[in-house]
C-alpha cells in the first residue's frame, strides 16, 4: 500500500473514532448502563496513564516498585500536594522539584 494512502486511512479512521459518538451515533442510543459507566472514564484513563509511567523507570523501563524508585516517591509527594492544595501548577512544581532533588541526591 502506498504510504500516503495508508496515512489518509489512518487519519480518516482516527477521526471517525473521535467523531463516532459526537456526530455519527447519538449517545442517547447507548444502553443506560453504558452511559452510567462513562462517569468512570476519567479516573480510569488517568490512572492507566499515570501508574505505568511511574512504575516502569530507568533507561530500560523496568518495573520498580520500591523505595529506590525516584519517580514513585516524587509521584506520591505530588499526590499528597494535589490532595491538600488542589492546584495543578503546585502539584507539577512540587513533583518535578522532588524528582530533581531525589535524582541529584541519588
Amino acid at each position: 500500500m502506498n504510504l500516503w494512502l495508508a496515512l489518509a486511512l489512518m487519519g480518516a479512521g482516527t477521526y471517525a473514532i473521535r467523531l463516532s459518538m459526537l456526530v455519527f451515533v447519538s449517545h442517547e442510543r447507548l444502553p443506560a448502563a453504558v452511559r452510567d459507566a462513562l462517569q468512570f472514564v476519567m479516573p480510569a484513563v488517568l490512572m492507566a496513564i499515570i501508574l505505568p509511567a511511574v512504575l516502569y523507570t530507568g533507561d530500560d523501563a523496568s518495573f520498580d516498585l520500591s523505595i529506590g524508585n525516584e519517580r514513585l516517591l516524587a509521584a506520591l509527594i505530588a499526590g499528597a500536594t494535589a490532595w491538600l492544595a488542589r492546584n495543578v501548577w503546585l502539584t507539577v512544581g512540587v513533583g518535578m522539584g522532588a524528582l530533581w532533588l531525589l535524582q541529584w541526591a541519588g
Binding site: I49, I50, A53, A82, T91, W100
Partner: peptide
C-alpha cells in the same frame, strides 16, 4: 532526557485525578 520533562505529564494527570476520586 536527564531533565525528565516527560514526567510533567503523569504529574499533571495526578493533579487532575485527585478531584475525580
Amino acid at each position: 532526557e536527564s531533565w525528565s520533562l516527560d514526567f510533567a505529564l503523569p504529574l499533571t494527570f495526578i493533579a487532575l485525578l485527585i478531584p475525580v476520586l
